[in-house]
Design a protein around this nucleic acid. Structure first.
Length: 593
RNA sequence: GGGGGUGUAGCUCAGUUGGUUAGAGCGAUCGCCUGUCACGCGAUAGGUCGAGGGUUCGAGUCCCUUCACUCCCGCCA
């Protein structure tokens, strides 16, 4: 028999009545009646109420026990009286009458309470993460994480995927995020990089003929944190398949996501076939390539309306003449909303750094007219054109933004979210997945240089012999994102497995052949020894968990996260190292100013 | 790198227009209490008001600097 327990704290029921049992666990709560003491004993599996009274010689000692101490209890299971049953506990029909007990691990005075729903400061939570993790909600989130990962492994195995590990110490690559670097002792002056993703390795696995690969892969990117982005490391369900087209990857991922989200959430999935939205359309209708499709609002381009003679809104007209765009959002039946509703949104837009939003409401008093600060600038005919383009009806309101295309996309996208939020238009009980497809291969950066817009290893669309390299910005790629509820879960692509084409595309982005050979030596070399057509994707495990656990912050689904400054407050990382360690690595530190 | 928010007892927070000795709940310690499950009742201890500087007769409160945590922008192929 086990020395510490015969049962766990979540399994005793009426069936165990009169049995002598041993339980071990944490003192969750004490209720001391002076001559009668209740102790809620907690472990991973549940809580069991234990009781002792002053006739027991251990009573006085147990009365003094600190919360969160670990104790072992020997006692007898008894059925509770009907009026003392606690339906909130799985074990609520019984209690354990304590015979003797033993302290297994004493607990000092706690830096924060465990048994409470109270929020407390992140700094304390992270420093005492082992205590924080005892709390119900986050404890359950971490268990969910384990179950989700097991489920993914099982599903992927059933789909014929093989799981492989890839190196953690690898080489730095010029594209993408900032790398974490690790100095090499045996190669002074040289550095490994932690992989931002196993991108090249998984393609090499395809070249090696393994056909279908997956991995719950750690990825390291030295970028600043956000609520949904851990500093340092995160996990992806990295997968890659040979001899596939885009649709084949979509089929695997759609099936997996639906099974996963059905199993671990009761929220409904809006469509089992995820809509496919071309990048260009997404940027127009939603102002972003990660649209929240739970939000029914759409964005319309009204630039041409502002070239009409009978529209007198000169500020916008001038901007349009110099190349700016006008985008609009229609809100249904908002004619009776108070002035403050409109002004708040305008004020909010200004606080986002824009020039605010113009707006009016369409009315019909004798004839169609616009009511609002800028309404008088619009003729009846121009309003009818606006109504035709946007589908707006009498009683609806229209918000306008005007600016350079990037700025107007951004503010209209944010306004779409803000207005939907204010009008309570978003169904919080659903998951709306979609694919964003047809990404451009290249884009122009601020210095007017052509660069890869996504993954440089993506396959361009169309007949390879007929690609128009003279107009690189028109080249689309087999590059796709999967988005759920406005959160980008993943990017993927059908890869470019032809070295000549790869050199050509890299040359457009300013890399000559030698640079490509040097920077991507492993892969470009491999592709010239018989590479299969292949493609894949890498959904973010942490973000999937945030959706399933309904958490706004990635730390709530991460066992041992770092803080915003990429420090582990519990382990004191990063930390200084000894002179000797630096010497071995051939490193010396600059004096900090 | 930039912008916003927060910082008062171990924890969560209140603290009015700048005004006497900075409060509450939980926790801790001590006492009372035999059916609670957020048990109850009473008492006690516990404070560099994040830090530094300034204005003022007087600063938790106003100003400046700085630190920590956090959210956002930049960044994230």
């Amino acid at each position: 028999m086990n020395k510490y327990r015969t049962h766990n704290c979540g399994e005793l029921t009426k069936k165990n009545t009169s049995k002598d049992i041993i339980l071990s666990g944490w003192v969750n709560k004490k209720r001391d009646h002076g001559n009668l003491l209740f102790i809620d004993l907690r472990d991973n599996y549940g809580v069991t109420q234990c009781v002792i009274d002053k006739s027991n010689k251990h009573f006085i000692k147990l009365e003094k026990i600190q919360l969160e101490s670990v104790i072992k209890i020997l006692g007898k299971v008894v059925e509770r009286d009907k009026d003392t049953i606690n339906l909130e506990l799985k074990t609520g029909e019984i209690e354990v009458v304590i015979d003797t007990f033993e302290i297994l691990g004493h607990c000092k005075e706690l830096p924060m309470p465990i048994f409470t729903d109270q929020e407390y400061a992140e700094e304390i939570r992270l420093k005492y993460r082992f205590l924080d993790l005892r709390r119900k909600k986050i404890h359950e989130n971490i268990i969910l994480r384990s179950q989700v990962i097991s489920f993914i492994r099982k599903e992927m195995n059933e789909l014929g995927f093989l799981e492989f590990q890839t190196p953690i110490l690898t080489s730095s690559s010029p594209e993408g995020a900032r790398d974490f670097l690790v100095p090499s002792r045996l190669n002074p002056g040289k550095f490994y990089a932690l992989p931002q993703a196993p991108q090249q390795f998984k393609q090499l696995i395809m070249v090696s003929g393994f056909d279908k690969y997956f991995q719950i892969a750690p990825c390291f990117r030295d970028e600043d944190a956000r609520a949904d982005r851990s500093p340092g490391e995160f996990y992806q369900l990295d997968l890659e398949m040979s001899f596939v087209e885009q649709e084949d990857v979509f089929n695997v991922v759609e099936k997996l996501m639906i099974n996963l989200f059905k199993k671990f959430s009761s929220k409904k999935i809006l469509s089992n076939k995820f809509p496919r939205i071309p990048y260009k359309e997404a940027m127009l209708k939603y102002g972003t390539d990660k649209p929240d499709l739970r939000n029914p609002l759409l964005i319309y381009d009204l630039t041409n309306v502002f070239t009409r003679e009978d529209v007198k809104f000169d500020i916008f007209k001038k901007l349009v003449k110099s190349g700016s765009k006008v985008r609009a959002i229609v809100t249904k039946n908002t004619k009776d909303k108070p002035r403050s509703f409109f002004d708040n949104i305008d004020k909010w837009a200004k606080s986002e750094g824009g020039s605010g939003l113009a707006y009016f409401t369409i009315e019909n008093q004798n004839e169609v007219s616009a009511k609002g600060p800028v309404g008088k600038f619009f003729s009846k005919q121009s309003l009818e054109e606006i109504m035709k383009i946007t589908g707006a009806k009498i009683g609806d309101s229209i918000f306008f933004a005007c600016g350079k295309i990037k700025d107007v996309e951004k503010i209209s996208s944010l306004a779409r979210e803000k207005i939907a939020h204010d009008l309570n238009l978003i169904d919080k009980n659903s998951f709306a997945f979609c694919w964003i497809v047809d990404y451009p291969m290249f884009e122009i950066d601020d210095d007017n240089k052509i660069k890869f817009s996504h993954n440089p290893f993506s396959m361009p669309q169309g007949d390879i012999e007929k690609i128009d390299f003279k107009n690189p910005l028109n080249i689309k790629a087999y590059q796709y994102d999967i988005v759920c509820n406005g959160i980008e879960l993943s990017s993927g692509a059908i890869r470019n497995h032809r070295p000549e084409l790869m050199y050509k595309l890299f040359s457009l982005a300013g890399y000559d052949k030698n640079q490509v050979d040097e920077k991507f030596s492993g892969m470009i070399n491999a592709l010239s020894y018989g590479a299969p057509p292949h493609g894949g994707i890498a959904p973010g495990v942490d973000r999937i968990l945030m959706l399933l656990a309904d958490e706004k912050n990635i730390r709530e689904v991460t066992m041992f996260p770092m803080n915003q400054n990429a420090q582990d407050l519990m382990m004191n990382a990063p930390s200084e190292v000894s002179e000797n360690q630096l010497k071995e690595l051939n490193l010396s530190l600059k004096k900090r100013k």
